[in-house]
Amino acid sequence: MTGVRVGSALTAEQAAIKELVHEFAVEEVRPGAQAADADEEFPEDVWDGLAELDLTGLTVPEEYGGFDADRTTYAIVNEELAYGQLAVATALSVHSLATSCIAEFGSEALKEEYLPEMAEGRPVGMFCLSEPEAGSNPAEMSTTAERDGDEYVLNGQKQWITNGQRGDVAIVFAKTDGDDPSSITQFLVPADTEGFEVGKKEEKLGLRASDTVGITFDDCRIPAENRLTEEGKGLSAAFRILTGGRIGIAAQAVGLAQAAFDEAKEYAGEREQFDQSIDQIQSVRHKFSEMATKIEASRLLVREACRQAEAGEDNTVAASMAKYFASDAAMFVTNEAVQIHGGYGYMSEFDVERMYRDAKITEIYEGTTEIQKKIIARELL
């Protein structure tokens, strides 16, 4: 693990967790990353390893067997797992979104039923907000949940659902009053519910080891007790959870960028041209200066967003700034890493090729770059 690593000091516990997860990422995640990407299969053995480290309970309260991580620890885990493979970090972050929703909004009965097992890794969680015609503006969603006695009947379609094929329990957002956006409500829906239909796995540019699908609800009946928020409180709940999620994505972008930097640094020290290693060529050295600066600036933005959250401050702007800047930095750094590798960087046998493809999604999921800029401007102006 290289890089200058400037920034706020970690506690002894946070530093130990960082070292532990980094070691796991290097020894258990990275070795199989290329094969998982090529085969488009999620490495379940890695997931089992995360469970053994108690990381699948990252956002589960201790009383339900979870890790109950503070915001900085959550970011550290995301950064270091993305250092190994972004698809693994993404799967865990979405699972953590689901457990966060249950922990914050679920009844005591739902918490007791789901959180202890989810903390142990199964069932795997999903987060179902986006739709084919409602991505950046979830208020336009068309999925409905109609009350029928002691049940709700869900109809509609969700899109781009991470853990969609391997997941067991979904957090679903739907309108309880026709097309009224003020009626959006949050529900817990087990994947084995009749009418819960999983679509084909999407073929993607990057993040290919992560299963991404569409999910259709066809007269999908769930008990009324599975409603997580009051009717009409679902969208505000989603935004609150996603603010924390954006810190995780920003941290993932930092980890991915750091991995690409380290790969390029090692390669540049070994590759010789013009009778010298290419890390002695000034134009290449300048690339490393820019890459390192963007990585460290991104890491500082993430840490500041975490600090504000832990201090009870409104970190909406800080989280959006971190997500916007870090994802942009990940694209820049992975691009430069490929360039430093030259022709080899374009070959799939080198990790930087996968990292370059993976980096793009950090500018899109959990709020595009354009949405982050909109949030920042709205709060500032």
Rank of each mutant, 00 (worst) to 15 (best):
A103M: 09
T162V: 09
E63Q: 15
D68Y: 05
N163W: 09
R71I: 11
T143A: 10
L86E: 12
L58E: 10
E104K: 14
G156I: 06
G84N: 09
A33M: 05
E79N: 05
N78E: 12
E79I: 02
V172H: 13
D45P: 00
A36C: 05
Y74K: 05
L92N: 12
R30Y: 00
F105A: 12
E80K: 10
N137A: 02
V153A: 06
A51G: 06
R122I: 02
P61W: 09
A82V: 14
P61E: 12
Y152D: 01
A109C: 06
G84I: 08
L81H: 07
A134E: 03
Y114P: 01
S130M: 02
Q157M: 15
V77C: 05
V169D: 09
G66Y: 06
L53G: 05
V88R: 05
K111P: 08
D148H: 13
A82E: 11
A35R: 06
E112N: 13
K158W: 10
T144M: 05
D70Q: 05
A89L: 13
D48I: 05
E40T: 07
E63G: 10
G121H: 10
S130V: 00
A75F: 06
N78D: 10
L92K: 12
E44C: 00
G121D: 11
P61V: 08
I161E: 03
A87D: 14
T56F: 01
G32D: 01
D168M: 08
S142H: 01
C101A: 15
Q34M: 08
R30A: 08
E151K: 11
Q85G: 07
A103N: 12
S107Y: 04
D150R: 00
A82N: 12
S93W: 05
D148P: 04
L50S: 11
L86P: 01
E52P: 01
Q34I: 14
A89P: 03
C128R: 03
H95E: 09
E108Y: 00
T56R: 06
L55Q: 03
N137L: 01
D68N: 15
M141I: 14
A134Q: 06
C101D: 11
D70G: 10
F173N: 01
V77F: 03
E117L: 06
Y83R: 15
A89C: 12
V172C: 13
T162Y: 03
M118I: 07
D168L: 09
